[in-house]
Amino acid sequence: MLYINNLTKNYGKFTAVDNLSLHVPEGDLFGFVGPNGAGKTTTIRIVCGLLKASGGTVQIGDTKAAVGSKEMKRMIGYVPDFFGVYDNLKVKEYMDMYGSMYGMLSSDIAKLTDDLLELVNLTDKKEFYVDTLSRGMKQRLCVARALLHNPKLLILDEPNSGLDPRARVEMKELLKNLHSMGKTIVISSHILSELSEMCDSIGIMNKGKLITAGRIENIMQQAAGGKKIHVRVASEMEPVVRMMKEEAGVVVDSVRENELIITHSGTEEAVCELIGRMIQNKVLLTGFYQEEGNLESLFMQLTGGKN
């Protein structure tokens, strides 16, 4: 659906986006993650035709439309990270204005506005002035606005910034809803765990480079690379520690009174065999569990390591 090839953006000598290549499949909810200054906004602005790339191409679907062309703009709905609204303009007029900017007829816009406002849960605000809406409402209104011309691709730049927890949940529900309707959605965020529950695939970016991208399950597995395992025993600790140290591919991370944390870099079967051997050695095993692939620590590891 969205193909980004070797995208580069230089500001003078500074490279904000460095040879970025990315593919977002149709119908995916794609999470674009990276710390401040990673180049997410820059990438998104280039895709939306608000910034000229220094190199590389962007393609949507199989059309040959150039970035910034009308054809391309028609395929994208963009919700910026920061945006303002007009004073003295009502919600329905706001929608009407943007609709007519896409050359739509007022009667069509009015019909769509009703549907979209219902979708974003703002039906009762239709006659309100946009500048009187709360931040969360404005954000949802902006999503409704971005959907007005029925774009193939919806791009949201940090839609959760500045929202309270409740508004975040509402935003997430809205995105899930849109996702289930089959829209292709790209959403950027600083926070990986925020995306991991709803995204199909993610890309992690740092300092202008794409560090990793792929299906969320694969990334999770990558995160689990060395499995962290908690071992609880009721018997003496020392023999267990000794045994662990002799095991191949096992590193003892920490030892507590009756708990041991190890990192196991072997396969699932190797882990099972380890359990078997412990029982054979008369270890009184009371607990044995593997930590979930910790995305946040993977994220820190990936984005922090190259300082």
Binding site: G49, G84, V85, M101
Partner: peptide, 14 residues
């Protein structure tokens, strides 16, 4: 100043 210009530029208005 009002930060509405970017959105306007992403619409089909030339």
């Amino acid at each position: 100043e009002r930060q509405t210009f970017d959105i306007m530029l992403t619409t089909c208005l030339s």
